[in-house]
């Protein structure tokens, strides 16, 4: 139980995917103009990341390791993630129209979101067991959602601020991110 809790806190706050691991910066900068869209993106990432990690984890231990072809990890994982995103999109369109309308537009963007592949590779590297890997993926994605929603909230305010011209858009986003990352560093003593 203690390990579960540690993984939860560590993956969500201490080693936040964006502020500590630098994964998924592109959607973080690209899809964070409004709180509502960034929340949608966060939910889509949570859904796909948990599913993708489960699949790549099983694939790794039931196919790649027995066949001793672990060097194929990169190729296999990215293919699984890319096809998974396609399937999720198709299924969602058929099964739940409202869910598709809410998350659908973010799905194609997720294939190239390095957080998905990054987390899938990390759980293998950290040698987690299966339940722990799922918790890690789910909480990392929640950490991503947290970061992107906080940032979108700040960015909505920035729209009306008088920013020096060269700093508008992307540069100010990074400087805001720097301050947020400093705030998140406050968590760093929590879990060793």
């Amino acid at each position: 139980m203690k390990t579960f809790f540690l993984v939860l806190v560590s993956s969500m706050f201490v080693n936040n995917v964006i502020f500590a691991r630098f994964l998924g910066i592109c959607p973080y900068v690209g899809v964070s103009k409004q709180v509502s869209t960034s929340f949608g993106m966060g939910m889509a990432v949570t859904f796909v990341m948990t599913l993708a990690t489960a699949m790549t984890y099983l694939l790794n231990y039931f196919l790649l390791v027995p066949l001793k072809i672990e060097f194929m990890q990169t190729v296999m994982f990215i293919l699984v993630i890319a096809s998974l995103v396609q399937i999720v999109e198709l299924v969602m369109k058929k099964v739940s129209k409202p869910l598709y309308n809410a998350l659908g537009i973010y799905l194609p963007l997720i294939t190239t979101n390095c957080a998905i592949l990054g987390v899938a590779l990390l759980v293998i590297q950290l040698q987690y067991n299966f339940p722990l890997a799922i918790i890690f993926a789910f909480c990392s994605a929640l950490g991503f959602t947290l970061a992107i929603v906080i940032f979108a909230g700040i960015r909505e305010r920035l729209e009306t601020a008088d920013i020096p011209r060269p700093f508008r858009n992307v540069p100010i986003s990074f400087i805001t991110a720097a301050i947020l990352a400093m705030a998140f560093m406050g968590f760093s003593g929590l879990v060793k």
Binding site: F19, A20, F22, P171, F174, I175, A178, I179, A181
Partner: peptide
């Protein structure tokens, strides 16, 4: 540390 990366790239 991470904040320095964001700050330097922004500038």
């Amino acid at each position: 540390l991470p904040p320095g990366a964001f700050l330097t790239l922004g500038v």
